[in-house]
Amino acid sequence: MTEREKMAAGLDYYDMDPELSAMRNRARKLLRDFNRSDFLEGDGPNPVLKELLGTMADGVFIEMPFHCAYGVNLHLGENVYFNAGCAILDCADVRVGANSMFGPAVQIYTATHAFDPVERASGRESAQPITIGHDVWVGGGAILCPGVTIGDNAVIGAGSVVTKDIPANVVAVGNPCRVVRELEIG
């Protein structure tokens, strides 16, 4: 298996592999173009984002500045909105359902590293996918850790650190993020 295939399969991979480095450099160049552009809301689909992201449905809008590691592992549903300063380490798939919104400086991390310092220094890491349902609202400064799933209609409070799955139809806050109440949808 190539290091890219290992990364996609959730296995340990060497992050400085030439193919992965080239993919990150491609993303950096596209992000540089995106973050320097004068693209405005209402201009239609951003062509740089179309090239950068794995999939992007209609109505996606991402404020600048924006950062991601690869881009190709990001899959955004209709009308997804990211406010300014969001960063996504998409070493594994990040799937976001329609009509989900992210406040400023939200961070989404799929990459994880060994606890053992010798293993960590080897340059090996792994990644776990993140799934975010439809109609989710993630408050500013929240951090989503590797492997979490956030259910449909959930609200994640600003500054929360999501370390475990959050069910649908709830408000969850804190560090670590925990459910504080259920939502009545209807």
Rank of each mutant, 00 (worst) to 15 (best):
E3F: 14
Y13G: 10
D15N: 11
M16Q: 03
D17G: 01
D17N: 02
D17C: 10
P18Q: 14
S21E: 08
M23L: 08
R26C: 03
R28Q: 09
R28L: 11
R28E: 06
K29F: 13
L30W: 06
L30A: 02
L31R: 04
L31Q: 03
L31F: 04
D33C: 09
F34V: 05
S37E: 04
F39W: 15
E41Q: 08
G42E: 14
G42I: 15
G42C: 11
G44T: 09
P47D: 01
L49D: 05
L52G: 05
L53F: 04
A57F: 05
D58R: 12
M64Y: 08
C68Q: 04
H75F: 12
E78Y: 12
N79M: 12
A84P: 05
G85Y: 06
G85D: 03
G85A: 08
A87R: 00
A87M: 06
I88D: 00
D90G: 00
D90T: 00
A92F: 07
A98D: 07
P104L: 01
A105W: 02
Q107C: 01
T110Q: 00
T110Y: 02
T110G: 03
H113N: 04
P117Y: 15
P117L: 14
P117T: 15
A121D: 05
S122M: 14
E125N: 10
S126P: 00
H134F: 09
H134N: 07
H134W: 09
V136A: 02
V136S: 02
G139H: 11
C145L: 08
P146D: 03
T163N: 11
K164E: 01
D165L: 05
I166A: 06
P167V: 03
N175Q: 10
N175W: 06
V180Q: 01
V180E: 00
E184V: 15
I185T: 06
